[in-house]
């Protein structure tokens, strides 16, 4: 017993170090992948409010670009007016049509925290479950896809940015419909990589990459980026295609969170089909 005490006293510096590292790494591992840790949730209530205040003040500096984006968005919406009726429900936009059943619903949210410099980047939005945001919703901007919601609290939501190691998104080349996987290799927040496109397909610089729609999260045809280069690594049968993101992640301000109204139906259909196979 005495020896143990002597040991602890003698090596207390190292032991405390190891203990604290263990706590930190546990916190990190639990929070990076699921973002569901209670501490972060409690913290986000405080920091969310804090960042909202800061963001309210700094917003004035960006009014000009925000206005430009809104004007562009308005122009786009006006073009769609002839085919769909828009009802303004404070901040949620519904399309009511008896012929076309609406599948996606858009919720406007403001970015209160955003990083681009880390290997795994996240975005915090000022709306949460109270505004109807749920886990696994798409987050888009007028210029393209920004990320996926990974966690929500009552008033804030936590979005995994496209600039993240865990982002894997189904994208296709608009010109020929070839489908691949969009990933981010962590070097530059302006460029991503498209993989899994077979090497025999003809592609060119400047080709547009859009979302394929083969997921329950992202609508089809959303802009992702434009191809800047392409090559086939030795011994590979697939292209490695660097492309430029259409979204400037460094200046995100307002985003739309996309709710897929038919997601549950789609998922339950998939599940019941899997059940059929098993029998």
């Amino acid at each position: 017993m005495r020896n143990i005490l002597v040991f602890i006293i003698r090596y207390h510096f190292l032991l405390i170090f190891l203990l604290l590292e263990f706590i930190s790494v546990t916190l990190l591992v639990n929070s990076t992948y699921y973002q569901s840790s209670a501490i972060l949730k409690a913290g986000s209530r405080v920091t969310g409010r804090f960042y909202t205040t800061v963001s309210d003040a700094t917003d004035y500096l960006k009014l000009r670009t925000t206005n430009e984006h809104l004007a562009q968005e308005n122009a786009m919406l006006r073009q769609m007016k002839s085919v769909s009726y828009l009802r303004n429900d404070t901040n949620t936009f519904w399309v009511n049509d008896t012929l076309y059943k609406q599948q996606y619903k858009y919720i406007v949210a403001k970015v209160v925290l955003n990083t681009v410099g880390k290997r795994n980047n996240y975005i915090m939005l000022d709306k949460g479950s109270r505004s109807g945001i749920q886990k696994d919703m798409a987050v888009i901007t007028p210029t393209g896809i920004a990320g996926t919601v990974v966690n929500v609290s009552e008033n804030f939501s936590w979005v995994m940015s496209m600039l993240n190691k865990h982002t894997r998104l189904s994208g296709k080349i608009l010109k020929n419909g070839q489908m691949g996987t969009v990933v981010w290799n962590g070097v530059d927040h302006l460029y991503g990589t498209l993989t899994d496109i077979p090497a025999h397909v003809k592609i060119a610089r400047g080709d547009t990459i859009v979302s394929s729609g083969f997921s329950y999260i992202f609508p089809a045809g959303l802009m992702i980026g434009t191809i800047t280069d392409f090559r086939v690594e030795q011994g590979e049968h697939f292209y490695t295609i660097p492309f430029k993101f259409s979204v400037d992640f460094n200046s995100l301000q307002y985003v739309y969170v996309v709710k897929n109204l038919m997601k549950e139906e789609q998922e339950s259909l998939e599940k019941s089909t899997e059940g059929l196979k098993d029998e």
């Binding site: 170090f17 706590i23 930190s24 990190l28 972060l40 913290g43 920091t47 990083t115």
Partner: peptide, 23 residues
């Protein structure tokens, strides 16, 4: 060590990277 842990954790809570700066 404790002060460093506290400092890191505070930065973490404000950057949404729980544990990273603390460690």
């Amino acid at each position: 060590l404790l002060l460093a842990f506290g400092t890191g954790l505070t930065v973490d809570i404000f950057s949404g990277t729980l544990g990273l700066h603390a460690a």
